[in-house]
Every structure is written in structure tokens, then in C-alpha cells.
Write a protein that binds this DNA or RNA. Structure first.
Length: 513
RNA sequence: GGCCCGUUAGCUCAACUGGUAGAGCAACAGACUCUUAAUCUGUAGGUUGAAGGUUCGAGUCCUUCACGGGUCACCA
């Protein structure tokens, strides 16, 4: 593909001016023009504020009315105008920082007729700074008595209605800025997400891990069983793949002597979109030399309990209709035992490869031909997953679907691997890393066989990785935790789109919605 | 991708078995100096997601399409 061809593929977006303006939008533009004509800079370069809205409310909302009057607290604070109550020559309004709102009171006799008229050109949604002193109204609401105000930005579109706000989920995702303006509780979800990620970094930093960044664009997508996105590098003339996992690079680092590494970054998988899946999602992966999958279970319990206690203040969380206890130790159950327990079939049945494949093929006819490992996976999802609400480590997954994990010493068909399930969702996946290069090569070759049979998600043979293993990977425990899903659990959000700021949606051709 | 549901004013929602598309908020004009879903009076605002079809007549019924939600399948 040439450079020109590549560029032709870039869609040209429409421009806002292509869209017919509504009456309200025309009126707002006219008001902005009037403001400009009165000599006000309509795109000022900065606002010297002394406080944030949140800061004022946090510090002064408990102050006594009399104390505030005595102290004469002067503030200059900026925010978005979210409600106005005009009463002739005086007006009450609230400004907001998407977290907190603060009332202000402007009177013609305090700011002068000219300024009061200028204020009347402001609409709900505009951004301004107010300067004045704090007081409390008759109803004890903390309020800024405005001495002067500064216009900072015009909102050229009407905001959604004040009682119900913005409900339309499609617009909420497509115009996240509007969602954040209108729904402070949604903004809180993203604040929590940020705080959780910061604490995760602290957690690993305290344990002598170092944070690293490995390639997002890989020549050979590996480290997971999934379909990749493909792209092209012009200068090198090669295909590149957006990574489906950082795993193989992180283990190369452990070979190199970085004994404890973690990475928090995006993975990309070219698969379905659902309330639990976004094509790009954030993954925490960490590797600890001289450890195994049992150590990973300990760390996982510790990490998630730490987050829950620090940010929710408890070890019991509410998710959807469930009360979920995070009290340690968490449940552990072997994959085959779980299958047997919830399906009612005897354990022995799951060793019969042919029968299992037939059974799973009936349940998932689209997927056939199934391998034995994939068939077990199908049965697990069918019979077991819906029962796992409290945190459960499902251990000893079939070796066949675990090409990067050590085999279990007491059963060569099983691996030293676990998946953590909470509220029916797979949250984490970990194993004792396979360190034997000869065995690893063999596993890759088996995966290649699966691929020949039509399993597009099989692992590709990565000889460069095998070569790295040949330099010696110490015994290592490794784990991936889906950050988006963890945030869903801790923030009690039912869709992954509620915890990803800009989830992928099919583009719409115009702005008129 | 399959199935089910949704799309009506800027927003949130109505409109019975097909019969003149409505309300609240927002907007506009006016009154109002402690309001907070401010209040009071008045005004304007619509190609009912798109295109076809059935019908004397379609927001409503049928077909196709677009976008979204739920669910199943794949996946973390």
C-alpha cells in the first residue's frame, strides 16, 4: 500500500457548521456576539482563581453563618453555570466543577447596572469566574456574594433538562463531555478509576516492582489466545499487529534480570463488543521471578482487598444484585471439579476427549470443530461461570488452552494456572510461567496445529521468544488483571462502557443527534 | 453475527383498536432584590431515525436500512 492509498482511507469528518442550527443555538451565538461587542474578551487566556469550587465547599460548608460574616472570606472561583434563578435585579445561580456545585448571588446594586446586564447575556452551560465574599443564605446554603465576575467561555448548545439530565446512553457515550457535565456521579466513577490505578501502582512499587512499557505494535501478536488488529508500517514495509497481550515481552524482561515488572496499558482484541468487552481495554500484567501461581493468588487477594478497603472502606461490596464478600481466603476450586460439581457429570467423563467434544459441539454448534481444550472451556462457561459470584480462583485449567503455563506436576493434562472470577466475570488470569524452551516450542507447535484446523485464536509460533527462554527464565509467576472489569466491580457499574471514557461505537455521519 | 426492544421539540417523556402530534424543563417577551425543580403572565418551537409500501387517512401496520440497548455466541 502506498502512502497516498493509506491517506485516502482516512475519513473526513463533517464539521459542526454543516449542521442546521436550532433556534436556541442561534440565540446563544447572538448573545456571544453581544458579549464581544461590549468589549469583553470572549476567549480569555486564563483566570486567576484563588479556590476551586470543591475546595470552597469542602472547607466552608460547615462554617457558621455568623463566623463567615465576621471573617469576610474573599474568594475568586470558576466553574460552569448550571442553574439560574433570576428575580429581577438579583439572581441566584450555581456553578459546578463536575463534582460539586456552589451557589452565587449577584445583585444589580453590588455590581452595577452595566455588569448586571452583561450577566443577563449568560446562559446555563457558560463558564465564568466570580469574585466575592462567602456568606450563608436564610436556608444556610453556602453562597458567594458576587462583587465582580469574568466571562470565560460560552456554551453554544443548550444543555439537557435539569431534572432528568442526560439519560440517552448513546449520547452519553458519544458526547462524554456532556455526560460529565450533567452526571457528576458518572464523573465520580472515572475519578475512582484513576485513584484505583494510582493505588495499584503504589502497591507494586512498594513491593519492589518496576513499571515498564512494552510494544503495542508487534510483528507477531502473542501472549493470549485472541484475534488481533492488523496495521502496516510504510517505512519498513511490514505488517504490524496491535498487541493482544504484553506477556511475552514482559517475560523477556524477567529473563533479562528485571525480576519484578508490571505494566498497565491497553490491549487490543478484534472481537465482539458487549457490556463486558471493548476492543481496546486496559490490562495490568505483572511478573515476579522465583514465584509460582500460588504466590499470584496471595498477591491478588491482597491487592483487591487493599483497594476495596482503601476506597470503599469495607471488604463487602455491592455489585448489581449481589453482596460480594472479599474476606480472605477466597474460594479455590479445580477446573474439573467445578465442571463436575455444577454439571452433575462425573469427573471421569471430562477425561473422555471425544465425548467432551461432542457434548460441547452440541452446545456451541457455531464453534465446531472444537479442540478438546476449547470444548472444556465451552462447558465451563455453560455450566460453571454463572454460579461464581464471590471471588473464586478456578485452578488447574486444561493444559491445552494454556500454552504458556507450566503443566501441573501431578496431572500432565492440567496446568498450574488459575482464573479469578468475581460476579460471573473473569477478572484475572495467572500461571506459573512455562520456562522450558523445548516444551514451549512444542506447545507452540500444538497451537499451530489447532490453527490449521481453523482455530484463528490459537497462538502463533514465536521462535524469538523461545530463543529468549533459552537464555534462562527463572521460575516465575505471572498474572493479568482486567482493569476495566475490576473498576466495574468496585464502582458497581454493569457495563464496561461506564468505566471507559470513550468506548468504541460505530461512527455516526452527522452531529445532529 | 442471531434474536428481542428502542429511536417523537434542545432534554425527559406522552399520544387507546390507524383518525387534527402534546406536556414539563430549556428558549423568547414581560413582572419580581434570600431563590434553589424559584414563582406569575404570554409566545414560539416538529420532514415523529431514513427510504419505500398498505390505506380515504400512518408516530401507530408491513418491508428494507441506520444507530443504540438487552441477550446469546466468541473473548478478558
Amino acid at each position: 500500500m502506498t502512502d497516498t492509498e493509506e491517506n485516502q482511507n482516512i475519513p473526513s469528518p463533517g464539521t459542526p457548521s454543516d449542521v442546521k442550527k436550532t433556534e436556541q443555538e442561534i440565540i446563544r451565538e447572538a448573545k456571544l456576539k453581544s458579549i464581544a461587542e461590549s468589549g469583553v474578551d470572549i476567549f480569555p487566556h486564563k483566570a486567576d482563581v484563588t479556590h476551586t469550587v470543591y475546595g470552597i465547599v469542602f472547607k466552608y460548608s460547615d462554617s457558621l453563618k455568623e463566623d463567615l460574616e465576621k471573617k469576610e472570606v474573599k474568594v475568586k472561583v470558576a466553574g460552569r453555570l448550571l442553574s439560574i434563578r433570576r428575580m429581577g435585579r438579583a439572581t441566584f445561580f450555581h456553578i459546578s466543577d463536575s463534582r460539586t456545585k456552589l451557589q452565587a448571588y449577584i445583585r444589580e446594586d453590588k455590581v452595577g447596572k452595566e455588569n448586571y446586564e452583561l450577566f443577563s447575556l449568560l446562559d446555563i452551560g457558560d463558564i465564568l469566574a466570580v469574585e466575592g465574599v462567602l456568606f450563608k443564605t436564610r436556608t444556610e446554603e453556602l453562597t458567594v456574594l458576587v462583587k465582580s465576575f469574568t466571562f470565560l467561555a460560552k456554551c453554544l448548545h443548550p444543555l439537557p433538562e435539569k431534572w432528568h439530565g442526560l439519560q440517552n446512553v448513546e449520547i452519553r457515550y458519544r458526547k462524554r463531555h456532556l455526560d460529565l457535565i450533567m452526571n457528576p456521579e458518572q464523573a465520580d466513577v472515572f475519578r475512582l478509576r484513576s485513584a484505583l490505578i494510582t493505588q495499584i501502582r503504589n502497591f507494586f512499587d512498594e513491593r519492589d516492582y518496576i513499571e515498564v512499557e512494552t510494544p503495542m505494535m508487534q510483528t507477531l501478536p502473542g501472549g493470549a489466545l485472541a484475534r488481533p488488529f492488523k496495521t502496516f508500517h510504510n517505512a519498513l514495509g511490514i505488517d504490524l499487529f496491535l498487541r493482544i497481550a504484553p506477556e511475552l515481552y514482559l517475560k523477556r524482561l524477567v529473563v533479562g534480570g528485571l525480576e519484578r515488572v508490571y505494566e498497565i496499558n491497553r490491549n487490543f482484541r478484534n472481537e465482539g463488543i458487549s457490556s463486558e468487552h471493548n476492543p481496546e481495554f486496559t490490562m495490568l500484567e505483572f511478573y515476579q521471578a522465583y514465584s509460582d501461581y500460588n504466590d499470584m493468588m496471595d498477591i491478588t487477594e491482597e491487592l483487591i482487598c487493599d483497594l476495596s478497603v482503601k476506597f470503599l472502606g469495607k471488604e463487602t461490596i455491592t455489585y448489581s444484585d449481589f453482596e460480594i464478600s472479599l474476606k480472605r481466603p477466597w474460594k479455590k476450586i479445580k477446573f474439573v471439579d467445578a465442571l463436575s460439581q455444577y454439571s452433575g457429570f462425573a469427573r471421569e467423563k471430562f477425561k473422555d476427549r471425544k465425548e467432551i467434544i461432542v457434548l460441547a459441539s452440541e452446545l456451541a454448534p457455531d464453534k465446531t470443530p472444537l479442540s478438546y481444550g476449547n470444548a472444556l472451556d465451552v462447558l465451563f462457561d455453560k455450566y460453571v461461570k454463572d454460579h461464581l459470584i464471590d471471588p473464586t480462583f478456578v485452578t488447574h485449567l486444561p493444559k491445552e488452552i494454556s500454552p504458556l503455563a507450566k503443566a501441573s506436576p501431578d496431572n500432565p493434562d492440567e496446568s498450574e494456572r488459575f482464573e479469578l472470577v468475581i460476579a460471573r466475570m473473569e477478572i484475572a488470569n495467572a500461571f506459573s510461567e512455562l520456562t522450558d524452551p523445548v516444551e514451549q516450542k512444542k506447545r507452540f507447535e500444538q497451537q499451530a496445529e489447532e490453527r490449521k484446523k481453523g482455530d484463528e485464536e490459537s497462538h502463533l509460533i514465536d521462535l524469538d521468544y523461545v530463543n529468549a527462554l533459552e537464555y534462562g527464565l527463572p521460575p516465575t509467576g505471572g498474572e493479568g488483571i482486567g482493569i476495566d472489569r475490576l473498576v466495574m466491580i468496585l464502582a458497581n457499574q454493569k457495563s464496561i462502557r461506564e468505566v471507559i471514557l470513550f468506548p468504541l461505537l460505530r461512527p455516526k455521519g452527522d452531529f445532529s443527534w
